[in-house]
């Protein structure tokens, strides 16, 4: 739920025009505590791990590797992976390879609209260190500067088998409670925002997309 807005904790939303200011929330995101009873949290994590809803948003060339996951050969439905078309319902965001600055803006918007706990898988070498786009004027080098990443699957391109292995690894991590990217994002919110605004020059969206 949106916490009541206190005056010292609001975002400027300077990128929005005057008539758009009222349309978007200016509240800062808040960190969420796990359930106080450990058994409940473990059970919740088990549910989250066994029902991974991937945001069907293809960024970059690696998105082509997501399609075979659902086909007869790999059938990711077996291990609880399913695609959801809207960020509101998805819990896993797979960054498919390189991300240009223009795409990064959409990634940030989509990531912030996802409801926590949310997990990010970076696919391919490009989100790790730039890959073959090492010296590109329009491609970011490290994704973890802009959104928190839980799992890297490296390669150029990783095959769908590796994606299945990555999903299994992510399940293991979620069950152990090691994936808390949403709260990391909230805690280092200003650092992430500064990094994002450094590369996204045309910032015409709210500072936090509820």
């Amino acid at each position: 739920m949106i916490k009541s807005l206190s005056t010292d904790a609001t975002l400027a939303n300077a990128g929005l025009s005057a008539e758009e200011q009222d349309l978007f929330s200016n509240a800062r995101p808040t960190a969420y505590e796990p359930y106080s009873i450990k058994a409940v949290e473990d059970f919740a994590n088990w549910c989250r791990a066994n029902s991974l809803w991937i945001l069907a948003f293809g960024t970059g060339c690696g998105a082509i590797e997501l399609r075979p996951l659902m086909t007869a050969r790999f059938d990711a439905n077996r291990i609880g992976v399913a695609g959801r078309p809207t960020p509101r319902q998805a819990s896993v965001f797979i960054i498919g390879g390189y991300s240009s600055v223009k795409t990064l803006k959409r990634i940030v918007r989509s990531y912030e609209q996802m409801q926590g706990p949310k997990f990010v898988i970076a696919l391919g070498i490009c989100p790790v260190n730039g890959g073959m786009y090492w010296d590109s004027y329009n491609t970011i080098k490290r994704l973890d500067q802009y959104i928190p990443v839980d799992l890297y699957i490296t390669g150029c391109m990783p095959r769908p088998e590796v994606l299945v292995a990555g999903a299994l690894e992510l399940k293991k991590m979620i069950k152990e409670g090691r994936c808390d990217g949403a709260n990391r994002y909230v805690e280092n919110f200003d650092w992430y925002k500064a990094n994002q605004k450094k590369v996204i020059k045309k910032w015409d969206m709210p500072d936090y997309n509820w």
Binding site: M1, I2, Y32, A44, C47, N50, Q115, W210
Partner: peptide, 18 residues
């Protein structure tokens, strides 16, 4: 059991906006 797990998964999301 997938439909039941899906329901529990969405139910245990920590954030929900209105």
């Amino acid at each position: 059991t997938q439909p039941i797990i899906n329901i529990l998964q969405t139910l245990t999301r920590r954030t929900a906006i209105s």
